[in-house]
């Protein structure tokens, strides 16, 4: 299938959200993993996964982007409109795209970071990407407690398999991006203030267990970045999930300035602060330079004492 609209778009963060400076390459659309919170169900995308063949158009867009932009470093997300490791064909296409990007990057003296975001463990069985000049692959694995995976990401890899997949990515010398997105308040133990606090404390304990497991296998030199981002839903999604009686439709969610439902500010800040604290305890103070908040407002970064930085500043 041919893509009829542009391939490259600056990520649309929404009103007031801190701009991380990443671009999205839509070389494929849709996904069959069926995550309950996925925005793709509500987007104008084909129902079945498709991969676009007209890469020559992408080449033109890249040339224009590199010519018009003086920046040397570019960060392209290849897992926004689909899962980067959804099928072997996806990886073959990414390899073809990498070849094009590498050629242009060398020509225009650019350094390119390609984020391969996934919820699968397909890296364990798919062929690896060819190493290319001026290209840095970031294996961005989405992580959340097993309970969350079982309930909301039914067709994806287990937490254990995802952690296993990090080892393979490291063997291939990819940089690692730990993506704690979406952070879901689950299980919810009740509706009272006390029960909500207890649920949040339980959530942090679950994440700390993940962090401990990861710290035992992670090659810190290959760690590119760690993102933290709590669940956010469009109005349509929130309504849909409420009607479906999904536990994702948490009661203490408010409409934020970008018109997305998020957990209320004290809840979000608590989650971020606690996870940042745990990350510092495990990896040391310097880890702060690798942590960013995904689609959050500047005032939330400040509340978490996190220095504002774009994703291209995290050079691995």
């Amino acid at each position: 299938m041919k893509r009829k609209i542009v391939f490259i778009k600056k990520y649309d963060y929404g009103r007031g959200v801190f701009d991380l400076g990443e671009y999205v390459i839509s070389y494929a659309s849709s996904c069959h993993l069926g995550c309950e919170y996925c925005y793709l169900k509500f987007a104008k995308t084909p129902k079945e996964p498709v991969i676009y063949e007209n890469i020559e158009v992408l080449e033109k867009e890249l040339t224009q982007l590199f010519l018009e932009n003086k920046a040397q470093n570019f960060y392209f997300n290849l897992g926004e409109t689909t899962d980067a490791f959804l099928s072997e064909k996806h990886i073959e296409t990414i390899d073809k795209i990498s070849e094009v990007i590498s050629f242009l990057a060398e020509k225009y003296d650019k350094r390119i970071f390609l984020e391969l975001r996934t919820k699968t463990d397909n890296i364990l069985k798919f062929p690896s990407l060819n190493k290319r000049k001026n290209i840095f692959y970031i294996y961005a694995i989405s992580l959340l407690p097993e309970e969350g995976i079982t309930n909301f990401e039914r067709n994806t890899a287990s937490l254990e398999k995802r952690i296993e997949s990090i080892k393979k990515a490291q063997k291939l010398s990819y940089f690692i991006g730990l993506r704690f997105e979406p952070i879901i308040v689950y299980p919810v133990l009740g509706i009272t203030y006390e029960k909500v606090i207890k649920s949040l404390k339980g959530l942090i304990i679950s994440y700390n267990k993940i962090l401990e497991k990861i710290s035992s296998i992670l090659d810190f030199d290959l760690l590119h970045s760690i993102s933290l981002g709590t669940l956010r839903l469009t109005k349509k999604q929130y309504k849909y999930l409420k009607e479906k009686k999904s536990k994702l439709a948490f009661f203490e969610m408010v409409l934020s300035p970008d018109k997305k439902y998020r957990y209320s500010r004290p809840i979000r800040v608590y989650i971020y602060q606690e996870l940042i604290k745990s990350l510092k305890e495990i990896f040391g103070e310097k880890i702060v330079n690798k942590i960013y908040l995904a689609t959050e407002f500047t005032y939330i970064w400040k509340a978490c004492n996190l220095p504002l930085k774009s994703i291209v500043q995290l050079l691995g």
Binding site: V196, E252, V254, P257, S264, P266, I267, T298, Y299, K302
Partner: peptide, 23 residues
Amino acid sequence: YPVLNKKLAALKNYKVPWNLEFD
């Protein structure tokens, strides 16, 4: 809003957006 409700009670002397989404 069990958490927000407690916060708004503590903020009753200040004029701020109820959802606390502000700088």
